[in-house]
Computed example of a mutant assay.
Amino acid sequence: MALDAGSYHTVGATASGRVLAVGDNSYGQCEVGDWRDIVAVAAGSTHTLGLRADGRVVATGNNDDRQCEVDAWSGIQLP
């Protein structure tokens, strides 16, 4: 369904809404095993974002610049 690559990791979302990630996990950017109902993914250099079917966003990895602070985001839609 979706695929993206960061500087040192690759992430993909399956048709069932699960997410897979491989590569450098120094910042926890590959810690996506418990994500469900994901319809899109994006990979930064050291962080990963997922868009859930209900419009919420999840994130993991390096948060030094607060790039993973998306807990309050909702209503996000694909174009």
Rank of each mutant, 00 (worst) to 15 (best):
13 A>H: 04
3 L>V: 15
4 D>I: 01
61 G>F: 04
40 A>G: 07
29 Q>W: 10
41 V>L: 03
3 L>P: 09
71 D>E: 09
5 A>D: 14
6 G>Y: 06
14 T>P: 06
18 R>Y: 13
4 D>K: 01
55 G>T: 01
41 V>E: 09
75 G>Y: 07
21 A>L: 14
23 G>C: 07
66 R>Y: 10
41 V>C: 04
71 D>L: 07
67 Q>R: 02
46 T>I: 05
18 R>P: 08
76 I>M: 05
1 M>L: 14
70 V>H: 00
60 T>I: 06
48 T>F: 02
13 A>N: 04
10 T>C: 13
11 V>A: 01
67 Q>M: 04
55 G>L: 03
8 Y>T: 15
9 H>Q: 11
11 V>K: 08
38 I>H: 07
47 H>R: 02
40 A>N: 11
16 S>L: 13
59 A>Q: 04
32 V>T: 13
77 Q>N: 14
78 L>D: 09
37 D>C: 09
49 L>I: 03
46 T>F: 14
50 G>F: 00
76 I>Q: 09
66 R>D: 13
24 D>K: 12
47 H>W: 00
18 R>D: 14
28 G>W: 06
4 D>S: 14
41 V>T: 09
54 D>R: 10
24 D>F: 12
43 A>M: 10
45 S>C: 13
7 S>P: 07
36 R>W: 03
60 T>S: 07
68 C>Q: 02
22 V>S: 12
24 D>V: 13
2 A>M: 08
8 Y>N: 15
55 G>E: 02
47 H>F: 09
5 A>H: 13
62 N>V: 01
17 G>F: 09
59 A>P: 00
79 P>S: 07
71 D>P: 01
24 D>M: 12
70 V>Q: 02
18 R>W: 11
3 L>E: 11
49 L>W: 00
57 V>Q: 04
26 S>H: 15
30 C>M: 13
68 C>R: 01
1 M>K: 14
12 G>T: 10
19 V>D: 08
62 N>F: 02
24 D>G: 11
11 V>D: 05
2 A>E: 12
69 E>W: 03
51 L>V: 03
78 L>E: 09
65 D>H: 14
17 G>L: 08
6 G>I: 00
60 T>W: 02
46 T>Q: 12
66 R>V: 06
64 D>L: 13
41 V>F: 01
20 L>D: 11
64 D>Y: 11
61 G>Q: 05
